[in-house]
Amino acid sequence: MSGDRLSGALDFLREAERLKSTLRSGYTSTGRPESTAEHTWRLCLMALVFSEEFGDIDPLRLIKLCIVHDLGEALSGDIPAVLQTEGFDKSARERADLEVLTKALHPTKRAEILALWEEYEAASSPEAVLAKGLDKLETILQHNQGQNPADFDYAFNLDYGRKQTSAHPFLAEIRALLDEETRERAEGSKG
């Protein structure tokens, strides 16, 4: 790797580090707000753990898609699903931020990351469809596991990401278990 290419890659990695401080709406099991980097890490772990259940897919491609799916949030942050308004194009904002974030990379690597993100957004491959479903499931899993505020809306999760989590029988199987946990958490939060 040439000096310029290495320098650009390190600059990119320094900027991407911001995901460690980009907070999401979920809470960890200790009650601390979850970061986007933490969400992405567990999403990748889910992809690794469950990859054999998805049949003939490329597990490395699945993990790459999971790694880049929220990368654009390093610049403008995350907007929780419950706060997204009609007419706001979260995807366009994240794409623009991703273009800025990757500008220091070698053009070939930059093009690869942008193409992976586009594939994820469009759900244009079996791996991207699975990544989108796992993304929703990881969020629900964290909401069920987290030490959430007293007014946390568990009912929202019962409809959240239904299309994406129905895209594969194994995703639907995980979803059924998480929906049951969600109902239990909702009941427990009432008392």
Rank of each mutant, 00 (worst) to 15 (best):
Leu137Ala: 01
Leu13Arg: 12
Ala186Pro: 01
Leu178Gly: 02
Leu60Gln: 14
Leu71Val: 11
Asp4Trp: 01
Ser125Cys: 07
Ala16Asn: 04
Ser76Leu: 03
Lys163Gln: 08
Leu23His: 03
Met46Leu: 14
Ala123Phe: 00
Asn148Tyr: 00
Leu171Met: 04
Ala96Glu: 15
Asp97Trp: 07
Arg183Lys: 14
Ile113Ser: 09
Pro169Gln: 10
Ala81Lys: 10
Arg42Ala: 05
Ser125Thr: 14
Gly77Tyr: 11
Phe152Gly: 02
Leu134Ile: 05
Leu137Pro: 05
Glu127Ser: 05
Asp78Thr: 12
Glu173Leu: 07
Ser124Pro: 02
Leu101Gly: 09
Gly188Gln: 13
Pro126Lys: 13
Ser7Tyr: 15
His143Lys: 04
Trp41Gln: 13
Leu134Tyr: 03
Thr85Trp: 01
Gly31Trp: 10
Tyr27Lys: 12
Gln142Trp: 09
Ala172Ile: 00
Phe152His: 15
Glu34Phe: 03
Ala111Val: 01
Ile79Glu: 10
Arg5Asp: 11
Thr139Ile: 10
Asp56Lys: 13
Ser29Gly: 09
Ile63Lys: 00
Tyr120Asp: 12
His143Phe: 15
Val68Ser: 07
Gly8Pro: 04
Pro107Gln: 07
Phe12Gly: 03
Glu180Cys: 08
Lys163Asn: 06
Gln145Ala: 12
Leu130Thr: 03
Asp151Met: 04
Pro126Tyr: 00
Cys66Glu: 02
Glu118Lys: 15
Ser21Thr: 14
Val82Met: 08
Asp89Trp: 07
Tyr154Ser: 03
Ser166Pro: 02
Leu105Arg: 07
Ser2Ala: 10
Ala167Leu: 04
Leu114His: 11
Glu127Ala: 02
Asn144Gly: 10
Arg61Ser: 11
Glu121Ile: 09
Glu119Trp: 00
Glu173Ser: 14
His69Tyr: 06
Gly55Glu: 09
Glu34Tyr: 08
